[in-house]
Amino acid sequence: MTVRNLPPVSELTEQQQRGWSCVWCAAPLSTGTAINLGEQRHEPAFGSPYWWFPRACPDARACAKREVTGDRR
């Protein structure tokens, strides 16, 4: 698997931050197949620090294609 830097949490939807959607292509994820990217701590300039839970699609090629085309299925 290729290692990718996570996008800035401030640019992600709530669904992406909570691991309900792919952190890169925003496609909905299922519990059994999503790739867990580990808990991530975010310390905003203002406000309290918090944890977020990114997950990714199991098929990296399909994910990359959706990311380019904007297809979220």
Rank of each mutant, 00 (worst) to 15 (best):
M1D: 10
M1E: 14
M1V: 13
R4E: 06
R4S: 02
N5V: 06
P7M: 08
P8T: 03
P8L: 09
V9I: 11
V9E: 14
S10W: 10
S10E: 07
S10A: 15
E11G: 10
L12E: 03
L12D: 00
T13R: 10
E14R: 15
E14F: 13
Q15P: 01
Q16V: 01
Q16N: 05
Q16E: 06
R18Q: 15
W20H: 15
S21G: 01
C22E: 00
V23G: 00
W24E: 04
C25T: 05
A26N: 14
A26G: 02
A26P: 07
A27W: 02
L29R: 03
L29F: 02
L29C: 03
L29T: 04
L29A: 02
T31S: 09
G32K: 15
G32I: 15
G32E: 15
G32F: 15
T33M: 07
T33H: 05
A34S: 13
A34V: 11
A34T: 05
I35P: 02
I35R: 14
I35N: 08
N36I: 13
N36M: 08
L37S: 06
L37C: 03
L37F: 04
G38R: 08
G38C: 09
Q40Y: 08
Q40P: 07
Q40K: 14
Q40V: 08
R41I: 08
H42F: 13
H42A: 15
F46N: 11
F46H: 10
F46A: 12
G47P: 12
S48Y: 14
S48K: 15
S48E: 15
Y50I: 04
W52V: 05
W52S: 04
W52N: 01
P54D: 00
P54F: 03
P54M: 00
P54H: 06
R55C: 07
R55S: 07
R55N: 08
A56M: 08
A56L: 04
C57I: 01
C57H: 13
P58K: 05
P58Q: 03
D59C: 00
A60S: 14
A60H: 12
A62Y: 10
C63F: 07
C63D: 03
C63P: 03
A64D: 14
A64T: 13
R66F: 09
R66W: 10
E67N: 12
V68S: 14
T69I: 09
G70F: 05
G70Q: 03
R72V: 12
R73Q: 14
R73L: 12
